[in-house]
């Protein structure tokens, strides 16, 4: 079986490499991709949308419909992972560990004992508990705000520099995941709960679709942002730039929430209580 698999892989791999001989050479100005539609984008993007970064304009404006369904794909990936992994059967262990925060004393309550109420003083900790490393914890605490500000910059500055909703959303999600790794999953879900994560992901996708629907209501085509000039009170070129920002924010929210949801479900094997 292994030999058969290797033969098939080699056969199709060599077929693919043989097919690349037909490709136009890299950066060839006479290739079909750069003769029909690319010159239009390069020449007209700045006049059409007032966005210097052509990639962002193509992604969110000229090909906005594709990007909307790309966001839907990421959203459905998150939902699929949720339904595959999430287990709703809560089996609470009889033995629990708590920490008295002011003194730092950890104590263990066996079956039959009275559990303290969750409060500022008593913090419940994982059964397979590893003490928080002071260096890792402090470093993460210090860099997380900068990561988040950088992510917001990437989303908002996608018009002028590389970046946009996808990258910014992933970095925002990574900041929350870093928090969950450096502390524990429970303290992370206390801050951003599972419910909020799912709400954020749906809101992101709906924000994208709603921007398109708003254009439709204002008497233009779906995702034709120039119609938004009636709302923002600017000319239609600037309105397209604003519309791109709106959908980028939607993409960022959806991607961030899906990344966090994937991590929560993977790290805790769907139980969302104790994890990495």
């Amino acid at each position: 079986m292994k030999v058969l698999g290797a033969i098939i892989v080699l056969l199709f791999g060599s077929l693919l490499i043989y097919c690349t001989l037909d490709f136009p050479s890299w950066g060839d100005p006479a290739s079909p991709a750069s003769t029909h539609v690319s010159p239009y984008y390069i020449e007209n993007t700045l006049e059409d949308t007032a966005v210097p970064n052509i990639v962002t304009a193509v992604l969110a404006d000229y090909r906005g419909y594709d990007t909307m369904f790309e966001t839907v794909v990421i959203f459905s990936a998150g939902i699929a992972c949720f339904f595959l992994l999430r287990s709703f059967k809560r089996i609470e262990p009889d033995t629990r560990l708590y920490r008295h925060v002011p003194t730092g004393i950890t104590f263990r309550i066996e079956k039959g004992g009275r559990y303290p109420r969750e409060s500022v003083d008593f913090e419940r900790i994982d059964l397979q508990w590893v003490p928080h490393d002071l260096i890792i914890k402090t470093t993460c605490r210090m860099i997380i705000p900068f990561i988040q500000i950088f992510a917001l910059y990437v989303i908002a500055h996608g018009h002028h520099s590389p970046g946009g909703g996808f990258q910014g959303g992933v970095i925002l999600g990574a900041s929350v995941i870093i928090f969950a790794v450096s502390h524990n999953l429970r303290s992370s879900t206390n801050r951003i709960s599972e419910k909020n994560v799912v709400l954020l992901s749906t809101t992101g996708v709906l924000l994208y679709a709603a921007t398109g629907g708003l254009c439709l209501l204002l008497g233009s085509n779906f995702l034709d942002y120039s119609a938004l000039s009636q709302i923002f009170g600017v000319d239609s070129v600037t309105a397209r730039s604003f519309g791109i920002l709106l959908v980028e924010i939607g993409v960022g929210m959806a991607v961030m929430a899906v990344m966090i949801s994937l991590y929560y479900n993977l790290a805790s094997a769907g139980k969302q209580d104790e994890g990495l």
């Binding site: 990258q167 990574a174 790290a267 805790s268």
Partner: peptide, 28 residues
């Protein structure tokens, strides 16, 4: 190759998040 946006996505998604998700899955 000059595809800076793609490079940015690859760095954040490929090298960043997917590695963390793989590690989380391996841990479980």
């Amino acid at each position: 190759m000059g595809a800076v946006d793609v490079a940015f996505t690859e760095a954040s998604v490929g090298a960043g998040i997917s590695t963390v998700l793989f590690v989380a899955a391996v841990f479980r």
